[in-house]
Amino acid sequence: MVNEKKGVSRRDFMKTTGIATGTLIGGGIIGGLVGYNVNRDKGTTNTTGNQKGNNSSGQTADHPVNVGLKFFSTMTAFNVLSQATERIFPEDDIGPGAIGLGVPYFIDNQLAGAYGMNAKEYMQGPFADGATTQGYQSRLTRAEIFTQGIAKLDEEARTRYQMGFAELEPEQMDEILTAFQKGEVEMLAVTSDFFFKLLRQATLEGAYADPIYSGNQNMEGWKMKGFPGHQMSYIAQIENEEFQKIEPQSISSMTH
């Protein structure tokens, strides 16, 4: 639990990559394995993110004070979310996975706001089950669906393996996630496949949204994908035959 806060790349990358000042240093596609959980000071490269709380080596005093939970109220739930997103979008030789990109914090933030509260969705009853062609018909908000879904992931892990979801082996997590994806797990007022769809989509959003939303750390998601983020113009490059490698830039560059 402490590990992901210390050494902490978020502060590190703010310092070392100069996001705040708009300059960009380093962070190549393979080299930039920067995530919440990289303890660079100690030279570890554990970017799979140990958020299980069983591997802590003491709280540092200088954890980033702007990172924390706004929606989930227990680390157990947050760790389930983290591991589930990491399975959907795992770290590999191309670069960081969901945890390294800050996706779990991104989702937590989103659930605390308009997205979680379905602020822009039509939420008046009567609610009825519809055909899949009729889309979202749950009476639950996304926040409610995630709360239930995350608890269900953990419950399913305990039923199948007598362990919390976050403690499972990757293949076991995948097995449970697949059961959710197929709609095989009972949920209330929503189906598990619908929850899985939301989770998958939110994971991709967190991996690739502009870093101002607290995912896509250090623009590593964009770097992996070759997407340059916010650029003013491509008029000078669009006729080039060659693929253009362009250092990405965040929209935050417009406010600094």
């Binding site: 959003e205 690739y208 939303y213 916010h230 650029q231």
Partner: peptide, 18 residues
């Protein structure tokens, strides 16, 4: 406006369905 998440995914400019 070069913010995919806000405009293309969260539908900043579109009708508020609520």
């Amino acid at each position: 406006a070069h913010d995919e998440f806000r405009y293309a995914i969260r539908y900043e400019l579109f009708q508020n369905l609520s």
